[in-house]
Write a protein that binds this DNA or RNA. Sequence first.
DNA 1: CGGCGTAGTTAACGCTGTTAGCTTAACGCC
DNA 2: GGCGTTAAGCTAACAGCGTTAACTACGCCG
Lengths: 222, 222
Amino acid sequence: MSPRQPDPDRALEVERQIVEAARDILAEGGMGGLSMRLVADRVGLSATALYNYFENKDGLVRRVIEDAFRQFGGYLADAAAPHPRGSLDRVQALGEAYIRFATEYTAYFRVLFSIQQDDPRTLEDIPDEGGFGLLQEAVGDAIAAGKMQPVDPGLMALYCWCVAHGVMTIALACRIDHCAEGRETTLPTDPLELFRAFRPLMRDGIAVPVPIAVADREGVEV
Amino acid sequence: MSPRQPDPDRALEVERQIVEAARDILAEGGMGGLSMRLVADRVGLSATALYNYFENKDGLVRRVIEDAFRQFGGYLADAAAPHPRGSLDRVQALGEAYIRFATEYTAYFRVLFSIQQDDPRTLEDIPDEGGFGLLQEAVGDAIAAGKMQPVDPGLMALYCWCVAHGVMTIALACRIDHCAEGRETTLPTDPLELFRAFRPLMRDGIAVPVPIAVADREGVEV
DNA sequence: CGGCGTAGTTAACGCTGTTAGCTTAACGCC
DNA sequence: GGCGTTAAGCTAACAGCGTTAACTACGCCG
């Protein structure tokens, strides 16, 4: 016995090339442009050879997504780094970086947060450690510093995430400018500008505040 | 001459059956389960016959989406009807109906607001008249009634939409409960509950308010 | 050298959207 | 009634997809 030994280094190298090709194709033409045969052509293999490295197309895509999530996490971390912990600016910077990443790497974002797939399990590992944990930490610090409402940091972080994610997904699915047709004032069509326009509403709320000290001084009026 | 006349009534009836079959298949198995041959089988035609009624698969899907958007608009209108115009409850009811529709008709919602497609133009007509216009109206009334911050109603409506949409798309793409792993408190995993948990944050903002009357009385403390 | 396992190949299956070409049926007119 | 015209359907086919089965070339070890 003792047949031919597998070469782990070479296998990893080929695997890396496959993932890289798949990533490029995905970034170029989106999910619809990705096929096993095309990936195989790029790395100079036949389509069936890919099945030696990945169980199936789903496995390959999953791998690309994992890498993209890691890159996403790094992107967010870089954006947060310049801002001091406990500051609202740090939270805002994370939100804006979220939008910028989605704008810059739209094809990735589309795949990362597609609502098409029936099994959201594939996404459950990476975003938490990468992105959401970072946001939750920043939010927790800001709450501890008295800059944000003293609520559950997880809930607060999730809320901030929802706003940024909502802005981006709506911007990708619909044309915002069309929502405002026939209006006098114009809405920002750029997602980042829109997100920034939301800042006052996020900070101070959508309802007219009823400050206690003022409320018992006179009738509620704004 | 004088050849055979086309029968518009029958053509419309067949077209209706095709759309209905496509809608059902979409609701059952999502976008991935929809194929021309399957639709054709359901209505007792061959796949190629569908091309007499729709330009291609995209056209058929677009038609189904249009219908779904109309249904969506009606769903929202029904939810808003019981609440008086100008009330915050009406706005909140619209938001909750948004979540409920997405939960109840998930397959529709996935197709309606997919971020996969590269052309968001297809979505641009219906949602405005159906859903967004309604929300914008409710928000405008609430602002006029002094219940909401006096900002551009379009911007305010878009903000509310982003929150609801963010909640739903995140819930569909990731598992919320996994975001909170290893935490002491638990986050609501149900989208509707989560949206309701966000209500205080939406109302009063995420930042600690600094009421003027209180701020100059003592140091800022919460 | 003989055997064995790795890493690749080609051929094929069943599916997809879509087109071309053919057939059937209904209608009005002579 | 027969005929031309046309709507509406059909089958066959093409190119592409993910995936499996069967086969081949290569290198190691005993």
